[in-house]
Simulated scan of single mutants.
Amino acid sequence: MQRPLAASLLVILTVALSACSGAAEPPPKDTRAPTAPTGVTATAGSATTVHVMWSAATDDRAVTGYVVYREGRQVKELPATTLMTDIVGLAPAARHAFTVRAHDAAGNISPPSATVAATTLPADAEDRTPPTAPRALRVTADGSRAATLTWTPSRDDTRVTAYDVYQADTRVHTAPGAATTARVTGLRPGTAYAFTVRARDAAENSSPDSPRVELTTASAPGAPPNTAPENLTATATKGEITLNWTPPDTGGPVTHHELHLDGRFTTTIVWGTTPPPGRATYAFPVQDPPGTRYTVTLRARLPDGTWGDFSAPRVVVVR
């Protein structure tokens, strides 16, 4: 017996729709929480602040942020790229307990980290004298993604309570006041870095910067040689900033450099003729008020048309 045409079409349409619906099944729901952050530390930096740090958590997809708790109450929410924070506005000479939890994009939140405690320092409102700058700062590579800094202790009329490590003009680590060493992690292979250290006392007085030290981390296996401009200097006069540097040895003339201020592209420096031999110089006007700080980096365009590695950063203050 012959099947009616309408019935045959209905069967074909049903099969086709079933196949389409199978191909469009949504991905499985993310129900797995990240691991708990590890390596949590809490250090009192003053009478009213505690510095909390931790190591990154892991997730089957990606950690998207961290939440810091004090005595079980949420006090900070931070992006996944941030592994340290200052908890401020605390009572002097008081003990506080902290935990950290990680979360992912689906809202899954990790178990709490181990609890760490710190006691804020006694208040000393009359202390207005900053510590002396740390001296003899040195840096050594610890693989291609970490570095260890050491320094000679600062002096203070009361006592040093913390040392803050800066990469260019950004604080990346805080060590206790009794420490003379710090390990900085999260660096990138084959990258130039510049570090300084400042001492701090209980009244939040910060010392001048220590002498600057520089480090270029080891390149990743198989990576090409570092192509960063070297020996960059940045000086400010009224209304102008002048840069001097040595272009990288690329096997050919370097005709273009990119200038970045505070990590943002600003301009391309182009030599109209043959690039000058030896050190290069470039000056540009600034209209910002005196005291404005810039972090300056450069990178060169290589003969193959790609951009090379960034120079070590320099901090310059507008006059």
Results as ranks from 00 to 15, higher is better:
Met1Phe: 12
Met1Val: 05
Arg3Glu: 14
Leu5Arg: 12
Ala7Ser: 11
Ala7Gln: 13
Leu9Lys: 12
Ile12Gln: 12
Ala16Ile: 04
Ser18Tyr: 02
Cys20Thr: 04
Ser21Ala: 10
Gly22Met: 12
Ala23Arg: 12
Ala23Val: 06
Pro27His: 02
Pro27Lys: 06
Pro28Thr: 03
Lys29Met: 10
Asp30Asn: 15
Arg32Met: 09
Arg32Val: 13
Pro37Gln: 09
Gly39His: 03
Ala44Tyr: 02
Ser46Arg: 01
Val50Asn: 11
Val50Gly: 10
Met53Val: 03
Trp54Phe: 04
Ala56Thr: 03
Asp59Gly: 04
Gly65Leu: 05
Tyr66Leu: 03
Val68Ile: 08
Arg70Leu: 07
Arg70Asn: 11
Glu71Ser: 15
Val75Glu: 07
Val75Leu: 02
Pro79Leu: 08
Leu83Asn: 13
Met84Gly: 11
Ile87Met: 09
Ala91Ile: 00
Ala94Val: 02
Ala94Ile: 00
His103Phe: 12
Asp104Pro: 03
Ala105Phe: 00
Asn108Gln: 14
Pro111Tyr: 02
Ser113Asn: 10
Ser113Lys: 08
Thr115His: 04
Ala117Cys: 02
Asp124Val: 01
Asp127Thr: 06
Thr129Arg: 13
Pro130Gly: 09
Pro130Leu: 03
Arg135Leu: 15
Leu137Lys: 05
Arg138Gly: 10
Val139Asp: 05
Thr140Ile: 11
Ser144Arg: 14
Trp151Glu: 06
Arg155Leu: 05
Arg159Gln: 13
Tyr163Ala: 05
Tyr166Thr: 01
Ala168Met: 09
Ala168Ser: 15
Asp169Val: 00
Thr170Asn: 14
His173Val: 01
Thr174Arg: 15
Thr174His: 04
Ala175Ser: 15
Ala175Gln: 09
Pro176Glu: 07
Ala178Cys: 01
Val184Ser: 13
Val184Arg: 07
Thr185Tyr: 01
Ala194Ser: 15
Ala194Pro: 04
Phe195Asn: 10
Arg198Phe: 07
Arg200Lys: 15
Ala202Ile: 00
Glu204Asp: 14
Ser206Cys: 00
Arg212Met: 14
Arg212Ala: 13
Glu214Met: 06
Ser219Val: 04
Pro221Lys: 07
Asn226Asp: 11
Thr227Phe: 03
Asn231Met: 04
Thr235Lys: 13
Glu240Gly: 03
Glu240Ser: 14
Ile241Thr: 10
Thr242Met: 06
Asp249Leu: 04
Gly251Arg: 09
His256Gly: 03
His257Val: 05
His257Asn: 14
Gly263Gln: 11
Thr266Arg: 15
Thr268Asp: 13
Ile269Phe: 06
Ile269Asp: 09
Gly272Leu: 06
Pro275Gln: 09
Pro277Asn: 07
Gly278Phe: 00
Arg279Met: 08
Ala283Glu: 01
Val286Ser: 09
Asp288Lys: 12
Pro290Leu: 06
Thr295Ile: 00
Thr295Phe: 01
Leu302His: 08
Thr306Lys: 13
Asp309Ile: 02
Arg314His: 06
Arg314Met: 03
Val316Asp: 07
Val318Tyr: 04
